[in-house]
Simulated scan of single mutants.
Amino acid sequence: MQWNIDPAHTNATFKIRHLGISNVRGSIKDVTGTIETDDAGQPTSVRASLPVSTIDTGSADRDNHLKSADFFDAAQFPNIEFVSTGITKKGDGEYAIAGNLTMHGVTRPVTLDAEISPPATDPFSGTQKIGGEAEVKLNRKDFGLEWNVALEAGGVLVGDTVTIRLEVQAAQA
């Protein structure tokens, strides 16, 4: 069964260390993609696309810098893409979703820790929907995101480890 990710009910967020003392948080809107499940409702594949042009950290200057060639280069690489390569059940509703993440033109294997809910009927539309949450930590430099500034007191402006979290709702196709 195919489920289409609903951009209006899906959030992609990220956080990364800033100045070595706090985290900058942001979001990416308009996430699209699909989730495939078998007859028992177990996920069998996941595809997601996150448009870099929608990055929002609450600072227009920072957002524009993130979209520039220093970071994501949104003009050349407009989307962050995830395509699953295998899904392993870890527990009741819990999964390890292995796949290829493409960001800034670089594709690397990652594994998302995920929870996926069973289908429910939307009382407004009458359609079946599923939901889920997934998280992955990765090193941005593995994807060619190298820009940084050394700080006078030591350390760097931008941390290397990024935590990406998805909260997804999808409707039966």
Rank of each mutant, 00 (worst) to 15 (best):
P118A: 13
Y95N: 00
V168M: 14
G33R: 04
S49P: 03
A48H: 03
L166M: 13
D6G: 02
I80K: 07
R108M: 04
V158Q: 10
I35E: 01
N100I: 02
R165T: 15
F72K: 02
T34R: 12
G105R: 05
I116H: 05
L19W: 04
F143L: 01
T161P: 01
T85H: 12
G86D: 12
V24K: 07
G154M: 09
V106F: 09
V158I: 15
I21M: 13
A120R: 13
L157G: 02
Q42S: 11
F72H: 08
F143M: 04
L166V: 07
Q128N: 12
G155W: 08
N4S: 13
K141A: 08
A40W: 04
A173Y: 01
Q172V: 11
G91V: 03
A134Y: 06
A98W: 07
A74V: 03
W147G: 00
T32C: 04
S27N: 13
Q2C: 02
D61G: 06
R47W: 08
R108Q: 15
E94Q: 13
V156Y: 14
E94T: 06
L166A: 05
G105W: 01
D92P: 09
K129Y: 01
D142T: 00
K15F: 05
P43N: 09
N79S: 11
G41E: 07
K15T: 07
N23A: 09
Q128R: 14
E81M: 11
P123L: 02
P51D: 08
V46N: 03
G155R: 02
V83T: 15
T161M: 11
R17M: 13
R140M: 01
V156P: 02
Q169W: 00
S22M: 10
D39S: 14
T44M: 07
Q169Y: 06
K137A: 10
I80P: 04
G132A: 09
S59H: 13
D92Y: 08
V52N: 04
D39I: 07
I164C: 02
P109W: 07
K90V: 09
N100F: 01
R140W: 03
L101Q: 06
D70W: 06
A150Q: 13
T102M: 11
N4G: 06
Q76C: 10
V162K: 10
A134T: 01
G33F: 10
T44K: 09
E36P: 00
T88Q: 14
T10R: 07
S22D: 06
T163R: 14
D113M: 11
T85E: 10
D142A: 01
A96Q: 13
F82K: 01
A114G: 06
A69C: 03
E133Q: 15
